[in-house]
Simulated assay, not measured.
Amino acid sequence: MTNLSFVPVQNPATTDSGHRFDTSRHWAASLTLGFSAFTEGDTSITRMNIARHYGPLRVQRPFYPEGRDGCCHVYILHPPGGLVSGDALNIDVSVEEDAHTLVTTPSANKLYRADSNDVAWSQITNLKVANGATLEWLPQESLAFDGSRGQQTFNIDLAENAKCLGWEILCLGRPASNIPFATGQLEQRFQLSRNGQPLWLERQTIDPNHPRFTGKWGQGGSTVHATLWTVGLSDPDQAITALREQLPTANHWAVTYRRGVLLLRYLGDDRNQVWALFQQARDILRPLLTGHQATVPRIWLT
Results as ranks from 00 to 15, higher is better:
Y54E: 00
P56S: 13
P56Y: 12
V59T: 15
Q60G: 14
P62S: 07
Y64M: 03
C72S: 14
H73M: 02
H73G: 05
I76K: 06
H78I: 14
P79D: 11
P80D: 11
V84N: 00
S85R: 14
L89M: 15
N90A: 15
I91C: 05
V93N: 09
S94R: 10
E97P: 00
A99R: 09
A99F: 10
H100K: 14
V103Q: 01
T105R: 04
K110A: 06
Y112N: 02
A114L: 05
D115M: 09
S116Y: 11
N117W: 12
A120R: 14
A120I: 08
W121E: 10
K128E: 14
V129S: 04
V129Q: 05
N131I: 05
N131D: 15
E136C: 03
W137R: 00
E141S: 06
L143C: 13
A144H: 04
S148A: 15
Q151F: 08
F154E: 03
I156L: 12
D157R: 07
E160Y: 04
L165A: 04
G173D: 00
R174E: 08
R174K: 02
R174D: 09
S177H: 12
P180Y: 12
L186R: 00
Q188F: 10
R189D: 06
R189A: 05
S193P: 01
